[in-house]
Design a protein around this nucleic acid. Structure first.
Lengths: 244, 244
DNA sequence: GGGGAGAGATGCCGC
DNA sequence: GCGGCATTTCTCCCC
């Protein structure tokens, strides 16, 4: 493909359409860190918000990228197309040296849809609020304090003996980080309420050995809880996903 | 574009070439969580390792995706192309209902290059090992214990008074999580070495207010350290050389 | 815009 | 494979 007409098309379409370019190239990045990627075949995508993604033929993550609102400059020089990308906000620079272009496609995509997602940590906390017996027969939830000034505790409550209880939920594996987090919240509540004893519970499907040991060390509990499955229930009831 | 020939091409190329499909579609996912994405225009990519990415015209991350080694099934039904993706290992399912295809491109990409990256947390720890004066005049590093069973302390050492020192490095902002982590390592060392006092240092460019408060509460220190910049140094050297 | 924490996080390395 | 943790994490939500 002719690099000169490629340059013109890129200049014309950047920020207006979603651009997909397959090319042999090398990539240099400098910003939050610094990186170099030697010559190889990749898919380069420039989205309508001027996000840049460079994908190798394997794995999920882009090998290089730039965030939204990046500025672009295209030059041809000695049989190469040089794409210079600069992001003011994040103080990042990226340069692609295109040695060969295999194809270029460009199209205005029309899509304002948001992903509807269920089974998150928030959903777990809400499930516990609505059905506190999941934790124990005598658990009384008080609040699902999310991003309040006071703290970020998933579920907060007390039991029949009047013990304050802090619950940290994790949708997958409870690891040492999760226990540290729980510990921090328990200590915050102890300090804020001026109480000596506060119960800590880690509610998740399973915990790692180190997390289990830490829970033990700090006198916390593990409660096996799985994230809710709304769509699966819907399916079982023979309803359509679109009804959700 | 004719959906029937689209189906044939997808069947033919999947896993062999990197496929890029621009299409109006809806997406249903069920696996670690559950999600639904209503009709809109997207770029669908199937990589040579059978990774699937679905990109909207904005933002960095794919709106839906499947990991490597996903199995595919393509069907046409009532003017729609249905792409069924199943991953055995992760027990995940995804379905794309393609209403309209704008373009389809496919190409075998040849690329085994690895990203060379500098300025990581590991580089920071190595920099401190080589040049301990960054921390203090009397800091003596002992080890950069990385992924040992014993712990994952970034830099471990002692000072002229014989105090043991644990350093946690962060390449960007030190936040409450980082202080919790440091605390955990300090406590591990106290227990393992049977010592009452161990110094904790958080080495990073800056810390958040809450992190600062926590550092204070636990008697830890903040040491301002920036990640190393190899390439930039090279550039400066080159410039200097050119200047002469 | 910064702080704080989740994510269908992903990827890497060690065991 | 799992565990532990960094990431140019990204994204969201609140202040």
């Amino acid at each position: 493909m002719d690099l000169e007409s490629l340059k013109v098309k890129l200049q014309d379409k950047v920020g207006k359409e979603t651009i997909v370019l397959a090319a042999k190239c090398e990539v240099i990045y400098s910003g939050r860190a610094e990186s170099f990627l030697a010559e190889g075949d990749r898919i380069i995508m420039i989205k309508q918000d001027k996000t840049l993604l460079i994908h190798q033929p394997k794995s999920s993550l882009p090998i290089n990228y730039m965030k939204e609102e990046t500025e672009y400059n295209f030059e041809t020089n000695q049989g190469e197309l040089i794409i210079k990308a600069h992001n003011k906000k994040y103080k990042e620079d990226l340069e692609i040296n295109v040695k060969k272009a295999y194809f270029l496609k460009s199209l205005k995509l029309d899509d304002d849809q948001k992903l509807i997602i269920k089974g998150t940590e928030r959903d777990m906390a809400e499930m516990i609020m609505k059905n506190p017996k999941i934790i124990s027969d005598d658990f009384k939830p008080l609040s699902r304090e999310e991003h309040t000034k006071y703290g970020f505790i998933d579920v907060f409550g007390y039991d029949s003996k009047g013990n304050l209880i802090v619950i940290e939920t994790k949708r997958y594996v409870g690891d040492p980080k999760a226990v540290s987090q729980l510990r921090r919240y328990v200590e915050r509540i102890k300090y804020a309420k001026g109480v000596g004893k506060v119960k800590g519970i880690l509610a998740c499907p399973r915990v790692t050995p180190n997390a289990k040991k830490m829970l033990n060390d700090f006198g916390f509990e593990f409660k096996k809880v799985n994230p809710p499955r709304y769509f699966e229930n819907e399916k079982k009831k023979q309803k359509k996903l679109l009804d959700f």
